[in-house]
């Protein structure tokens, strides 16, 4: 025997199923508009752990992209500075080589060297966002001391003292013409070289740290991303420029002057070789950052697609569901109305 539905069950079942369909419709609509499950944790369950984890990785990835931009800008500035130093040094070197063959205009050489030294200091003291590019870990102190500062700075005073104690006179003394070539050569290779040794360089010339900046450029790679002003190439360059600018080259005898020019040319040669290496090193860092960025772009896509596979809703499927549910609701409305009409009372 089939059971007769009770009047209460009939009406309440319609109400219950309508409510259920309407709840589903609200969810499907939300999913359609957001592209995500209406209640991710209910749908994904334990997979939420992976979802949260992936989201965190994605966040970090985006941060590293941002920090790589900072690192990249720093390296770009470094490259430009290095190439400007190289071209100035190459110009000075060309002048020196000409002077060695034809004696040249020593006053002009001194002037060019002084300009070069000033530009050297300015270049090393470049900042980006307030941080000194060549400072290594010392971001907030200008790495190179200005040789032409007034009152004279430590590097200028050190050279003056060395000159005075070696020759018993100052550089501007007219008697400088009497300094012999061997004496000058010995001064250059011993006393003056010592001024550009790492300890004296750190004391008088440079505030940079030997430690380069460290940065994380990808999840697993932390690398040094700066070149410090304490590199030998810069010391050589400074030595060459200083010898030309502040040993009263124009007052010296021809022989002693030639010795200064020769020695300076040697130092600048070594500096040029060093600068090329530094450019290669900075280029290597740039390449590393770029390759890290490329890898991370791939990872980013992977993470996004994995997150989407956990959280995401297929829009076509959601749209179909919305349509289906709406049809269902319409049918339910029609049926309810019809069944309500169906009562024996109407026919009695």
């Amino acid at each position: 025997m089939t059971s007769v539905p009770s009047t209460y069950a009939l009406s309440s079942s319609f109400r219950a199923s309508l409510l259920e369909i309407e709840t589903q419709l609200a969810r499907a609509r939300q999913e359609l508009s957001t592209g995500r499950h209406a209640d991710v944790s209910l749908t994904a369950g334990a997979a939420v752990a992976r979802d949260v984890h992936l989201g965190a990785r994605l966040d970090q990835l985006n941060t590293i992209f941002e920090t790589n931009k900072i690192v990249g800008a720093r390296l770009d500035t470094t490259q430009i500075a290095l190439s400007s130093l190289t071209s100035t040094a190459a110009d000075v070197r060309a002048t020196l080589l000409r002077a060695l063959s034809d004696g040249g205009d020593r006053k002009a050489i001194v002037a060019q060297a002084r300009l070069a030294l000033a530009s050297f200091t300015a270049t090393l003291n470049q900042t980006i966002g307030g941080d000194y590019v060549f400072g290594g870990e010392n971001l907030d102190a200008a790495p190179a001391a200005d040789y032409f500062a007034a009152p004279p700075s430590a590097n200028k005073l050190a050279l003056d003292n060395a000159f005075l104690s070696a020759f018993g006179m100052t550089q501007s003394d007219p008697a400088a013409a009497s300094i012999s070539a061997p004496a000058m050569e010995s001064f250059l290779s011993v006393e003056m070289s010592a001024l550009f040794s790492p300890p004296n360089w750190a004391a008088d010339w440079s505030q940079a740290s030997d430690e380069p900046l460290l940065a994380r450029i990808s999840f697993f790679k932390t690398t040094s991303v700066s070149i410090t002003a304490n590199d030998p190439a810069f010391r050589e360059l400074a030595m060459g420029y200083t010898a030309l600018s502040d040993l009263s080259l124009d007052a010296l005898s021809d022989d002693a002057g030639d010795a200064v020019i020769r020695t300076a040319a040697q130092h600048i040669d070594r500096a040029l070789a060093g600068l090329t290496k530094l450019q290669a090193a900075a280029g290597g860092m740039q390449a590393e950052v770029e390759s890290a960025n490329r890898t991370m772009t791939v990872q980013q896509g992977l993470f996004l697609s994995q997150i989407a596979s956990i959280e995401g809703v297929d829009p076509t499927e959601a749209a179909t569901r919305v349509n289906g549910l709406m049809t269902q609701i319409e049918i339910a409305y029609t049926l309810t109305a019809k069944i309500q009409q169906l009562s024996l009372v109407k026919y009695l």
Binding site: V48, V52, G55, A56, T63, G129, D131, A215, R216, E311
Partner: peptide, 29 residues
């Protein structure tokens, strides 16, 4: 994403990690 708008410790840890990473790139800032 589930972590973006979330006040959960997991999301806060991720934010802190990002902030530290950003700080490490500009330690002077």
């Amino acid at each position: 994403s589930a972590v973006d708008s979330s006040a959960s410790p997991a999301a806060a840890i991720s934010n802190l990690s990002s902030a530290l990473q950003a700080y490490s790139a500009s330690p002077n800032d």
